[in-house]
Design a protein around this nucleic acid. Structure first.
Lengths: 100, 100, 100, 100
DNA sequence: AACGTTGAAATAGTTC
DNA sequence: GAACTATTTCAACGTT
C-alpha cells in the first residue's frame, strides 16, 4: 500500500490538508473567473464588444513578434471584410493603414 | 467619422482599463494554477496518488444532489449493460436498487 | 562520399516507405477518432449522456484487477477523509471494509 | 429520467450498442497504434533513427494542416468578398462549405 | 437552455 | 523515473 495505512492518522491528516488546500485554491480561481465575467459585463454595458476584447487579450498574450504578424494579418482580413470602419479600434487601424 | 466623437480618447482609456483589469485577473488565475500544481507535486513527493486525489476533489465538488443524480444515472446505465453484477460496488448498488 | 554508399538511394526509398506507412496508419487512426465522435454525437442526439458513457467505457477498459485496486485505493483515501459515511456507495464500501 | 427507463429494454440495447461500437473502434485504434510501433521497430532494426522519423512525420503533418488551414481561410475571405461564385473551383468550394 | 466551438487542463505516451 | 510532448477530456463561451 502506498502512503495511506489503516492506522496512520497523520497521513490521513496530511491527505486532508492537501485536498483542502487544492479546494481553497480552486475556489479562489472560481472567484476570479466570476470577477472577469463581471468586468466583461460592465464593459459590455458601456458599449464595448466583449468578443473583440477577448481577441485583444489573446493577442496581447502572444509574444511581440507573433503578435505583430497576427495583427497585420487580422487588419488585412478585417479591412477586406469591411469590418473596420465602425469600431474605434478600426478607425485607428484604418487611418494607420492609410499613412503607411 | 462614425459614432465616435472627440471623446474617443476617453473611450480608449476605458477600454485599456478593462483589458488590463482582465489581464491582471488572468495572471492571478494562472498563479493559482501554479500553486495547485505545486500542492499536487508536494503530495506526490509524499507518496500520494495525484490522479486519485483529483478524483476525490471532483467528487467532493459536485454537491450532494448532483452527485446522487450522477450516481443514479451511472448505475442505471451500468445496470442496463448488466455491468453491475460482478463487482463489489455493483453488488451493493444492485441490492439497493432492489429495495428502492 | 561519407558513410553512405551506392545504395543510399535504396535507403532513402526504404525510409520514405516507412514514413508513408506510418502516415497511412495515422490517417486511419484519425478516421477512427472521427467515427467515435460520430457515435457519441448520435448517442447524444438520442438522449444519452456522453460524459457518463465515457466513464463507463473507461471503467470497462480497466481490467478487473486494476479496477479493484483503483477502487480500493480510492476507498482508502476517502475513508481517511471520512467521506464514505454519508453516501449510499460509501455505506456499502464501509461495511465491506469492516469485514475484510 | 433521461432516456434510460427501468423498463426500456430497447433503450438499454441501444446504449449497449453505442458503447460496444465505441469500444470496437477504440480497439481498432489500439491495433493501429501497435502497427505503428511495429513499423518503427522494424525501421529501427534497419538502422533508422526513430526519433528523427517521428520528427519528420510531425513536420509533414504540420505542413499539411497549415496548408489546409490556409486554404480554408482563403476560401472564407474569398467567399466574403463574393469572389467565389463565378468560377468552377469556387462553386465546388462553396458547396463544400455548405455541407461542413 | 441545448448546441457546437474553442481554449485550458489532464492523461497517456515517448525520450533520456 | 522524471521531463517533455501529443492526445484526449473537460469546462467556458457565444449562438440559436
Amino acid at each position: 500500500m502506498s502512503g495511506v495505512g489503516d492506522n496512520s492518522g497523520i497521513t490521513a491528516e496530511q491527505l486532508k490538508s492537501y485536498i483542502e488546500r487544492v479546494e481553497r485554491l480552486n475556489a479562489e480561481k472560481e472567484a476570479l473567473t466570476g470577477d472577469i465575467r463581471e468586468v466583461f459585463s460592465e464593459a459590455k454595458a458601456n458599449g464595448f464588444d466583449v468578443k473583440i476584447m477577448r481577441q485583444i487579450i489573446r493577442i496581447r498574450k502572444m509574444d511581440a513578434d507573433d503578435r505583430r504578424e497576427q495583427e497585420a494579418l487580422l487588419e488585412t482580413y478585417m479591412a477586406a471584410l469591411g469590418m473596420l470602419a465602425d469600431t474605434p479600434l478600426g478607425e485607428a487601424a484604418l487611418s494607420r493603414r492609410g499613412r503607411e
